[in-house]
Design a binder for these strands. Structure first.
Length: 918
RNA sequence: GCCCUGGUGGUGGAACUGGUAGACACGCAGGACUUAAAAUCCUGUGGCCAUUGCGGCCGUAUCGGUUCGAUUCCGAUCCGGGGUACCA
């Protein structure tokens, strides 16, 4: 008779559900701890063994914190709007809500089977109207806000209107589109339409013509981070640039705060760095150049104003507005041809051609601001229209791209910073001193930058400026399965619905496709108008809308009157530990920070960052198997074989070959290298390869199979035992037997040889107490640094040692059950109850370890000679350095090892090591 | 190219602040129990040499440095994973 996990695990899961064991209490007396997982998109494929990795880790922390006396918020929900359900709807006509519901039910079953301690009363689904009501509500807040750079925060648009009414916009410093100066009188004379049009330039959520990433196959625009190398991240379809009227969110207003506040976050250096790069702050100066014979100026942005005397030409982006105006008659044709060419080249082509230099001379000349020299103005598509001013002052000696351009078109190169060899390559480093630079000569780069900016500002030619790479976030999607905008149009201008009319529910449509005229699917809905007859917005919000604030909703998930109550948010504040994949670094994790800061600015929430600590769990990789066939002409063809056809030695036995043959019509049996096993059966040895786990790669392992065979506790411990949480690792079940053995061995500590429960009330011996207390200490320390794999090891050591001592004493086994409970909740509940406790182990007290049980009287010193360990000598702990060295040197074995030599030096580190130098 | 990570037995990994490298587990080999198997238990297991007895040498990607002592710190190189890419 052995431990039967099936019944025990089922029994306790039912108990937890029935008793709402994991319900979190708002406003509890206890200190709070909020541990959150990135909620999943419920795909049709269900969970594979990689998904629960992070959930198990967070669940262990949640359970540990409960034992430590915290009120723990540990919720789960679904990121339920999204493309796959909609694509499926297009193919089958089935409403995406139905597919989504089915998938969620499947996810829920799988999650429940693992024994997570989620508070399911707080479940959220972004596609539920009572959730997206508040997503729409936040959008309305964004629409009615502007970013005041003077106070450095978002404010109600009313404060801006008040200023306009009294002073116009002359003194307003806002994050906004380019707006001309107007006075209070001008403002008052404007009609409603003019005023609204103007305000649209200031709003945090605004409508504008934007160059977007249009994906024709998906029929929608995509955000920058949804595009990889010119193809859509989902589906891998080509993406083109297109000018469209779109909703955008003014995330760029927060660029500096998003960057600065990173330093206080306990997030991994790599995620911080990815965000830093994505925000892309660069400091420099703007600078205007006059054009010869024209009443126009070109403004450039440069981070190296110190190299101004090395500027030998200017380069404009082909899209630059001055291109047409300044081109001379004899260059006009060449310029037009080049502009046309670049316009039609897709992003993809531009990227592929990075190394290919192209450009054309406009015929115009600029006057060098300081030297007065005539310098030519060129066009080149290495200059991007969207960054800085779309124009650069080219300093070929000190910029690699300018250097390549100058070499190619044979333009002059003047060295102005010493230190490199400009005959060979550009010298980009910000080190060295200035030469050939008039009043800057002799200065170091940093000092020169400071001086030249002063000079530029003094002459009124420009000013010190900061530029960001971060673009405003495009917020419309031409899709069905997303949040409808709470927006209608009057006179062609957008207005928001009244808050009391929320939610604006997603209407039914006859097909999930764009209309014949190319409008989004919502244009198909009947009566898609307000009660006053105004047309409603037909775009929907992107996938990341709901996920940008869902962590707040969990705090107060059923509140119908507010997105989250003040009491709830003041108690829970923010997420203490957030666990999820690193692939969300530039998307979700940036947007959720942005929305948090926005809501904070409006005084709606107390914390300005969503999550204090973030851990990115490593991906669990799949192991794919390939069958290699040698063709007659000596080539090799690989077939991907579903892993369920192979045995645990990667062998495809002959009796399963017919099934495989059905998948591949060309597969020739006699072209394969068959081998014979011990029993005479034929098989083919398949070739493994480690890659991402995915349905299409036939390498998915589901948690269900593992749980059926070994139990949920075993799956939980095994996933933790695989290695450090953050590292990516291939899935294999090689070690799972070891974990399963450990669980059975643990069970046997509490039982006699016939599986009868048997725990004694004898007092524990010092040896037993030592084993227990060092394990408590170790697991507690490991928990602090999220080192779950090493904790599992120490549990194994503990159980092994107690087994050796045949210890079955309550004084040891009861605390042991508690410290193991976060990892193996089912078996420990059962043992806890067998030991006579009523109720759950969840809220027991985590035992405290005591130093007195752990410390030894002696320390076994490793004795090294010249740094190499030679022997070990046990000595009492309380000796002085001198006592230790004299005892050691007098020791027989040491005398033998020293072979008559006199030690040159002896290093004694108390309770660590002794090293004798000969 | 640039930035960030990582490289330890046959395998997953441990060694937390420079102080006994390889914990724990898998696998493998041998043994006990059993009619047999499963389960369980015991022994061994980095490499090379010597194994009658101690033992000796090498070893944390490679090369070099700092140190009484380096998987850990520093420099250079190689390889893997991730991010990013005309951002002026």
């Amino acid at each position: 008779m052995e431990y039967d996990f099936t019944d025990v695990e089922r029994k306790w899961r039912n108990y937890w559900a029935k008793n709402k064991t994991y319900a979190a209490k708002n406003g509890s007396e206890k200190p709070k701890y909020y541990v959150l997982d990135m909620f999943p998109y419920p795909s049709g494929a269900g969970l594979h063994v990689g998904h629960p990795l992070g959930y198990i880790a967070s669940d262990i922390i949640a359970r540990f914190k409960r034992l430590k006396g915290f009120e723990v918020l540990h919720p789960m929900g679904y990121d339920a709007f999204g493309l796959p359900a909609e694509q499926y709807a297009i193919q089958t006509g089935q409403h995406p809500a139905i597919t989504t519901e089915q998938n969620i039910n499947r996810y829920r079953e799988q999650l429940d089977a693992i024994g997570f301690s989620f508070d399911w009363d707080r479940e959220v689904r972004t596609s539920n109207a009572d959730f997206y009501k508040w997503t729409q509500w936040i959008f309305i807040k964004l629409f009615h806000s502007w970013y005041n750079k003077k106070t450095d925060k978002a404010e109600d648009i009313k404060t801006l209107i008040t200023v306009f009414e009294s002073h116009g916009n002359g003194d307003v410093w806002a994050a906004c589109e380019e707006v001309g100066v107007f006075s209070a009188d001008d403002w008052k004379k404007m009609d409603e339409k003019a005023q609204q049009t103007l305000l649209l330039n200031y709003r945090m959520a605004f409508l504008s013509d934007t160059m977007v990433n249009w994906c024709p196959q998906l029929g929608t625009v995509l955000a920058n981070e949804e595009v990889k190398d010119g193809f859509s991240e989902r589906g891998g379809y080509p993406v083109v640039r297109k000018l469209m009227k779109q909703w955008s969110l003014r995330i760029s207003a927060y660029a500096d705060r998003l960057l600065n506040d990173l330093k206080d976050l306990d997030w991994s250096p790599s995620i911080k760095e990815i965000q830093e790069n994505w925000i892309g702050k660069s400091e420099g100066s703007s600078l205007r150049f006059k054009l010869e014979g024209l009443d126009e100026e070109i403004e450039v942005f440069t981070t190296r104003p110190d190299t101004i005397f090395g500027a030998t030409f200017l380069t404009l982006a082909p899209e630059h507005e001055l291109v047409k105006k300044i081109s001379t008659a004899d260059q006009k044709d060449a310029v037009n041809a080049y502009v046309e060419l670049s316009k039609n080249r897709s992003e993809r082509e531009r990227m592929a051609d990075v190394k290919k230099i192209s450009g054309v001379f406009t015929g115009a000349y600029a006057i060098h601001t300081f030297s007065g020299a005539k310098i030519p103005v060129w066009i080149g598509d290495y200059v991007l229209a969207g960054y800085g001013t779309g124009a650069v002052m080219a300093v070929p000696a000190h910029d690699t791209r300018d250097y390549a351009f100058a070499k190619y078109f044979d333009l002059p190169i003047i060295e102005v910073v010493s230190g490199g060899d400009i005959s060979k390559e550009a010298y980009d480093a910000k080190e060295g001193s200035l030469v050939n630079s008039d009043f800057l000569n002799g200065l170091h780069v940093k000092a020169a930058i400071k001086k030249i900016i002063e000079k530029i500002e003094e002459k009124g030619l420009g000013k010190g400026k900061v530029n960001y790479r971060l673009r405003d976030a495009i917020f419309s999607r031409q899709r069905y399965w997303g949040e409808p905008f709470p927006v209608y149009y009057k006179d062609g201008l957008p207005y928001t619905l009244d808050e009391k009319d929320l939610p604006l529910e997603l209407p039914d449509v006859d097909a999930y496709l764009p209309t014949e005229t190319g409008e989004p699917p919502l244009a198909r809905a009947k009566n898609w108008i307000t009660k006053d007859g105004y047309p409603l917005e037909t775009n929907t919000m992107p996938g990341w809308a709901g996920s940008s604030w869902y962590y707040l909703r969990y705090m107060d998930a059923t509140n119908n009157g507010e997105f989250v109550s003040k009491d709830a948010v003041n108690y829970w504040q923010d997420v203490d530990l957030y666990i999820g994949g690193a692939e969300h670094a530039t998307g979700h994790l940036l947007y959720v920070r942005f929305w948090t800061k926005f809501l904070y600015d409006l005084g709606l929430i107390p914390a300005k960052e969503p999550a204090k600590k973030l851990i990115n769990q490593g991906m669990i990789l799949g192991r794919s198997l390939f069958l290699n066939e040698n063709t007659n002409d000596g080539k090799q063809i690989s077939y991907r074989i579903p892993i369920e056809y192979a045995d645990d030695k990667d062998r495809l036995m002959i009796d399963r070959f017919t099934e495989v043959k059905k998948m591949f019509t060309n597969l020739e049996m006699n072209a394969l290298s068959w081998k014979t096993d011990e029993t005479g059966k034929q098989f083919i040895l398949l070739v493994p390869e480690i890659e991402k786990m995915s349905k299409s790669k036939y390498n998915v392992v589901t948690p269900d199979d593992i749980i059926a065979k070994y139990g949920a506790d075993c799956l939980r411990i095994y996933e933790m035992f695989l290695g450090p949480l953050e590292l990516p690792k291939p899935w294999n079940t090689n070690g799972i037997e070891g974990v399963s053995k450990f669980i059975r061995k643990f069970w046997r500590l509490y039982h006699d040889g016939d599986n009868n429960f048997q725990v004694s009330d004898e007092s524990p011996t010092p040896a037993e107490l030592k084993i227990l207390h060092k394990t408590i200490k170790k697991t507690e320390e490991d928990m602090e640094r999220f080192s779950f794999n090493t904790s599992v090891s120490s549990f194994m050591i503990c159980v092994n040692e107690l087994t050796d001592l045949k210890c079955n004493k309550r004084g040891i086994l009861e605390p042991l059950a508690i410290i193991l409970a976060p990892y193996a909740p089912h078996i420990t509940e059962e043992l806890w109850s067998l030991m006579g406790n009523t109720g759950t182990i969840t809220y027991a007290n985590f035992p405290e370890w005591k130093e007195e049980y752990i410390i030894d009287q002696n320390f076994e010193y490793p004795i090294s000679i010249n740094g190499k360990t030679r022997t070990k000598i046990s000595l009492p702990l309380n000796l002085t350095k001198e006592e230790i060295s004299s005892t050691i040197l007098a020791h027989d074995e040491v005398i033998k090892l020293m072979a008559g030599k006199t030690p040159k030096n002896i290093i004694v580190v108390p309770n660590r090591i002794v090293n004798i130098v000969l």
